[in-house]
């Protein structure tokens, strides 16, 4: 794998780092197919992701990246094919008892009627993870610290910028103590500065939390900035999968067409 430069770290978040105890898991997708009416979106996706890896699924808009992510988290049912996380099929009845998957949505999907703190604490409170709400708040504030939003716990989501919302959503996913985090277009709609901040956050998480991450994006710069390996999705199939160096050197015309302009500039 390509050695990535060290990510920036703000040193915050000791409690959340101590609290995170999940074992990172691998993901194995075999011949995944999905159609919506006559539109065949996924045409046999095969993908194997190692534990602790950050894999970026890169592709043009409308190639089925988000649909693939929604299958991995169980929001969509495939027509055929299997998805195994940590060696267990996600459709097994007890899967959710053994594995927790966090997801950061493209729209952040924060609850507008809840403060930042209540948004991040929602999972812990609803599942009664801690008897004492003070412990919940400690973890929540620590998670907000790790995403650089220590002072924002009482703010309503409508008062936050797009990048801040994305970071709150990351904190919300982190407190679930997940085995795997999925990111759907984490930089979509953000300015270049904020895109860089989110990219740093993804790398920081990879370095400090060592969690398996799957990032779906069409942002080539972000993909090469955060990925351990990159999968190129085109026409509902993975056409190339490898390290950023491998992808850069790849001779596949479709891959070159997608990534080359970025390096010529």
């Amino acid at each position: 794998m390509v050695e990535k430069p060290a990510a920036r770290s703000n040193g915050a978040g000791k409690e959340i780092l101590d609290y995170l105890s999940s074992e990172p898991v691998g993901v194995s997708i075999k011949d995944l197919r999905k159609s919506f009416g006559d539109n065949q979106v996924l045409r046999g996706v095969d993908l194997d992701i190692e534990p602790r890896e950050t894999v970026v699924i890169l592709g043009k808009s409308g190639t089925g990246k988000s649909v693939l992510l929604r299958h991995i988290i169980g929001l969509e049912e495939p027509d055929s094919g299997t998805i195994e996380i940590g060696g267990e099929d996600i459709h097994e009845p007890d899967f959710k008892k053994h594995h927790i998957i966090g997801m950061v949505f493209q729209s952040s999907a924060l609850f507008n009627s809840f403060s930042v703190e209540d948004n991040v604490a929602l999972y812990l409170r609803e599942h009664k993870i801690f008897d004492d709400d003070r412990r919940t708040l400690e973890i929540v504030r620590s998670a907000l610290g790790i995403v650089g939003l220590e002072e924002k716990e009482d703010v309503m989501p409508s008062m936050l910028s797009g990048g801040m919302k994305r970071r709150v959503a990351v904190a919300r996913a982190l407190v679930m103590n997940p085995d795997l985090i999925l990111f759907d277009e984490p930089t979509s709609g953000l300015d270049p500065m904020m895109t860089r901040t989110v990219g740093d956050l993804l790398r920081d998480l990879n370095d400090r939390v060592e969690i398996t991450q799957i990032v779906v994006t069409h942002d080539v710069d972000l993909a090469f900035y955060v990925a351990d390996r990159i999968a190129i999705l085109s026409n509902g199939k993975i056409i190339e999968f490898g390290t950023p160096e491998h992808i850069k050197r790849c001779e596949n015309a479709a891959v070159k067409e997608f990534i080359t302009p970025q390096f010529e500039q």
Partner: peptide, 21 residues
């Protein structure tokens, strides 16, 4: 609004049943 802005999906990913919640 919650459906359109993926908040219902977010609840499901947190294993919080939207009907109960």
């Amino acid at each position: 609004s919650m459906s359109v802005y993926e908040e219902i999906d977010a609840l499901k990913t947190m294993d919080i049943n939207p009907v109960r919640f």
